[in-house]
Structures are given as structure tokens and as C-alpha cells.
């Protein structure tokens, strides 16, 4: 069965239902709008370029088992598996990957979200706070008092 998706800039994509259902949001929408499947499902936060990429990802991973969202699950111990295809897939620039993370987050495509976040984590790894701020253009918005407190804490956070 096919499902049509419409990106924020009006482009329409037709995909297999099981592919689209990797997105938790679409899966839920399909349950609600069972009768009304002629209209494309609007994705207001996702542009055509990103949507195409998300669909490409979902096509490849259509048969994967789902990630269980167990609270006990400590993902720090068990990083997600990345196959060669995934590695190829993540060879994009930072801006594109961040758009993909946002898209995956708004569509709730969990494995893609985790893949993107791992990409981000790999960038952040071993960087100093200053380097991180510079790279991602994040403002240092601490007050001097907060700064002192954090500084003190950090010294003891040797886990």
C-alpha cells in the first residue's frame, strides 16, 4: 500500500506504507485518518530536500527492528549499530545533517534521529567548551555567578 507525503514546500512523495511508518508521527496519523488516504499527509516542518533524504533512509531500513524506548535502556553502554550504508549516508555537511536531525525529530524517525545525534556527538567529542561554542555559534549565556558555580562542580565531576 502506498502513502503520499507532502513537504513544507509543496512537493509530494509517494512511498510504501511500511516505509512511511518508520515515522511514529505518520504511523499515528495513518491510524487516525484511515478512511482518508487520498490526500497527501502534510509535513509542515520538513522541506523537500530533507524529506527525500529521510525517505531514502527509511527505504533502506524498512525491515529493521524498532528501537525500544525503555527508560532503563542505557544507550551509553550500547551504541546503535551503524552499517556501511549508514556511514555513506552520514557523509553530508553539518548543516544538512542538522536539518535532517530536525526533520527526524519532528517526524519522530527514531533510528535516524539517533544516527544524526551520534554524528553530532562525534563532532562534539573531545572539544573544549570554547571550540563547541565557536563551531555551533552558541552564546555563552552564563552569568559570572553561574560560571563560578559550574566551575566548582566540574572539578568534582570525575566519574
Amino acid at each position: 500500500m502506498k502513502v503520499t507525503l507532502e513537504s513544507s514546500d509543496g512537493q509530494v512523495f509517494t512511498v510504501d506504507k511500511e516505509v512511511a511508518e518508520l515515522s511514529v508521527i505518520i504511523k499515528e496519523m495513518l491510524v487516525i485518518e484511515q478512511a482518508n488516504q487520498d490526500h497527501p499527509i502534510p509535513l509542515l516542518n520538513v522541506g523537500a530536500v530533507e524529506l527525500a533524504k529521510v525517505i531514502e533512509y527509511c527505504e533502506h531500513h524498512r525491515n529493521d527492528p524498532t528501537i525500544d524506548d525503555d527508560e532503563d535502556y542505557d544507550s551509553r553502554k550500547k551504541p546503535i549499530e551503524m552499517d556501511d550504508w549508514d556511514k555513506q549516508f552520514t557523509i553530508v555537511n553539518k548543516e544538512m545533517m542538522f536539518e535532517l536531525i530536525l526533520a527526524a525529530n519532528s517526524m519522530q524517525v527514531k533510528p535516524l534521529l539517533h544516527l544524526g545525534c551520534r554524528y553530532a556527538a562525534d563532532i562534539v567529542k573531545r572539544m573544549s567548551p570554547t571550540e563547541i561554542r565557536d563551531l555551533f555559534q552558541i552564546d555563552d549565556d552564563f552569568t559570572p555567578e553561574e560560571q563560578d558555580k559550574i566551575e566548582w562542580e566540574k572539578q568534582w565531576t570525575k566519574l
Binding site: 551509553r76 551504541p79 556527538a121 567548551p129 555563552d140
Partner: peptide, 18 residues
């Protein structure tokens, strides 16, 4: 999720970014 993938030392640094 990003922080989940970081090891402790990077998390310590991340904690003082903003």
C-alpha cells in the same frame, strides 16, 4: 540523545557550554 553518545569527559565539557 546527543549526550547519551558522549563519554564522561566530553559531557563534563558539554556541561559548561551554555
Amino acid at each position: 540523545i546527543v549526550f547519551d553518545a558522549l563519554e564522561t569527559s566530553s559531557l563534563v565539557a558539554a556541561a559548561v557550554v551554555c
